[in-house]
């Protein structure tokens, strides 16, 4: 009864062609986002699933001081990687604090980057006002029940949150995304991969139709760096972040010499807290510095009544992770 074609190419270039040739075709990897949206919530209507699940794009390779992660590596596989354990511990923490083991056995790294917002107004086709689904139709969430929504990168057109945990440390690490299409490959820094909604919330990233995420390249933390990921939520497990933060810092003689901060649960895109990093570097590793960094990170938030509490909570989340990793 479905009108969705299913194809499973065995090589990457066929996969790219099969999507590129049909404007309504979609890549299908782990399925945890795509099948949910297409078959259950029914807010996307692909004509064709191009199942890339068995393409040879799986595994983790150490390349000097970088890790090259093939896009179909699952969240569980990446979390188990020995280099991730030793040199990117906060990536492992973020992975294991996300979803459930079942979903982590299915969900891929590429798919995690491309996961769609959990906004219930986006995910309910009975809601007419959703600029992300239908540009110009409005935003029901802004006037509605908004709690698990964004305060950074948000605006009157859209407050939909990017709910990934994994992307929070990745964006902090200046990870890069390798993309492939018929024209060849290109590399895009994760910090430039996502687009904040502006007046086109339907455009979420720089991917062209038919372009495939093939790898994610993650620099390793320099030896001696302390890192951590904190996830704040009402339920102890199996819930998206209300707020979260990833931090990696180096401290010498009580002074912060390097800092990377990513934020989750607050942004329409995985959020890099550049301003906080600027406050931290060169400053003494103390409570005052952390609070100043937090204030710098959450500047000019866009809030609605349901999300206003996140402004202070996000700041405290930043302070807490900085205190934790420097302890």
């Amino acid at each position: 009864m479905s009108d969705i074609e299913y194809v499973r190419p065995t090589d990457t270039s066929s996969a790219v062609t099969l999507v590129a040739e049909d404007p309504d075709a979609a890549f299908l990897a782990g399925g945890t986002t795509e099948l949910d949206l297409a078959l259950k919530d029914r807010v996307i209507r692909p004509s064709r699933f191009v199942d890339i699940g068995r393409l040879p794009l799986r595994g983790v390779t150490r390349e000097g001081d970088r890790l090259r992660v093939a896009a179909l590596t699952t969240m569980e596989e990446l979390a188990a990687d020995p280099t991730v354990r030793s040199r990117l511990p906060f990536v492992r923490e973020a992975l294991l604090l996300g979803a459930s083991t079942q979903l982590r056995n299915m969900a891929t790294i590429g798919g995690n980057l491309l996961q769609r917002t959990r906004c219930r107004y986006f995910r309910d086709p009975a809601v007419h006002a959703c600029n992300k689904r239908e540009p110009g139709s409005g935003c029901a969430a802004i006037e509605g029940v908004a709690r698990m929504h964004a305060i950074l990168g948000a605006g009157p057109s859209c407050i939909a949150l990017h709910a990934s945990d994994l992307c929070v440390p990745l964006v902090a690490m200046d990870a890069e995304v390798e993309l492939l299409d018929a024209d060849g490959t290109r590399r895009v820094p994760l910090t430039e991969f996502y687009r904040t909604p502006g007046d086109r919330p339907d455009v979420e990233n720089v991917l062209r139709h038919g372009e495939l995420v093939t790898h994610v390249v993650v620099p390793l933390l320099p030896a001696g760096t302390r890192s951590g990921y904190i996830k704040v939520r009402d339920r102890q497990s199996y819930e998206f972040a209300t707020t979260s933060a990833a931090a990696a810092v180096q401290v010498e003689d009580g002074t912060i010499t390097a800092a990377r901060i990513g934020l989750g649960g607050v942004g329409t895109v995985p959020w890099r807290a550049w301003e906080a990093e600027r406050v931290l570097v060169g400053a003494p590793a103390n409570e005052r510095t952390y609070r100043a960094a937090a204030e710098a990170a959450i500047r000019d938030p866009f809030t609605v009544p349901g999300t206003a509490f996140k402004v202070e909570l996000a700041k405290r989340t930043i302070v807490r992770i900085l205190r934790t990793v420097t302890a």
């Binding site: 399925g31 945890t32 259950k40 079942q102 979903l103 056995n105």
Partner: peptide, 28 residues
């Protein structure tokens, strides 16, 4: 039926997954 409860958990090649967000075709 949306991967949020785990009632449909099965093992695929020895690993637990939720069968509601997996196409039968993917398990060929």
């Amino acid at each position: 039926d949306q991967g949020a409860c785990g009632a449909c958990t099965v093992l695929r090649d020895g690993k637990r997954i939720v069968s509601c967000l997996t196409l039968a075709a993917q398990c060929d």
